[in-house]
Amino acid sequence: MTTSPTDGSTIPPASEASSEPVPPPARRPPTGRKRAGAVLTAPLSWLPLLFLAAIVAVLLYASDFHNFGLSFWGPNWFPDPLDPASASYGVLVFAVGTVLTSALAVFLAGVLSIGLAISLVMFLPGPLARVLALFVDLLAGIPSVVYGIWGYVVLAPYFANDLEPALQSHLGFLPGLGGSSVEIAGGTGLLLAVLVLTLMVVPLTTALVRDSLRSVPRALEESGLALGATRWEVVRRVHLRYARRGIFSAVLLGLGRALGETVAVFMVIGNQVRFPPTLYSGTSTIATLLVGQFDSAFIYPDLLRALVEIALVLFLITLAVNVIGRRFLTDGGLGRIALEAGPEKAAS
């Protein structure tokens, strides 16, 4: 509490609400004696990093360091186990599918979660905000196969019979929304995959954006209001500016999540091996290729090697996206979704 400079006496505990932050816990205790416990537990905390290294090592080993050459990045995917000489393992189609689904889903999820997070932090009364945040978190808990079966059995027929024909006839002039009605087929395809993926990414990005909006110092928010700005103006001019990095990082971590999502996307994307001419068309992603072809690859060494190398590429890309995303993140991220009961909140 405050000490009066005139007389130096300490004032009895203030009854006014204090805005003093609780000091961070001291990390180092005053005494030493840490040998035994430290030696016993140290290796385990290296385990996550060891796993990462082991994943690279095992995948490299499993690929026999096989070099498919430039055609690996090409557009032709003809795995022909009977005639290895004419087979071709170009992954471009899958890479395009992954980029399209992830980019669209992350864009939608990003826009949506910025709106949701602003509502939660600024506009909704506390109890309602807490309940709504729980529902959004619940979305993160739904298993991906459950999204998949819902998308495949419930949504796909609706997309094929109602939504997509309507989009095609009314918005057909827009790129990706026109094309032949043949493309709609069973409703599975890019559009449905993007939608399902968006729902799966939204909880993560919302939690991260919410955290970074909350990290805006209360004093800055109050200063904006004291200058006669409305809440919305303070959000735009103070919060969004201050939380830029956090929002960027949320989008990147969301992208990391979307790139690797496998099972749900496989169930709703149609799995044709081709560049999708429209948003309704079936296509494939790297992850769906990995899960869909592995069974048949057990006995075809070249296909197996190709899949393993693609898995390695996917691993390295998501790793890079996550590393960059985390660089922009001051705190939060994993586990924050469920761990609302942080000491920093309890103390305030």
Partner: peptide
């Protein structure tokens, strides 16, 4: 944190 970001299929 990075291990948590590894795709399940990998």
């Amino acid at each position: 944190n990075l291990l948590a970001g590894v795709p399940a299929i990998v």
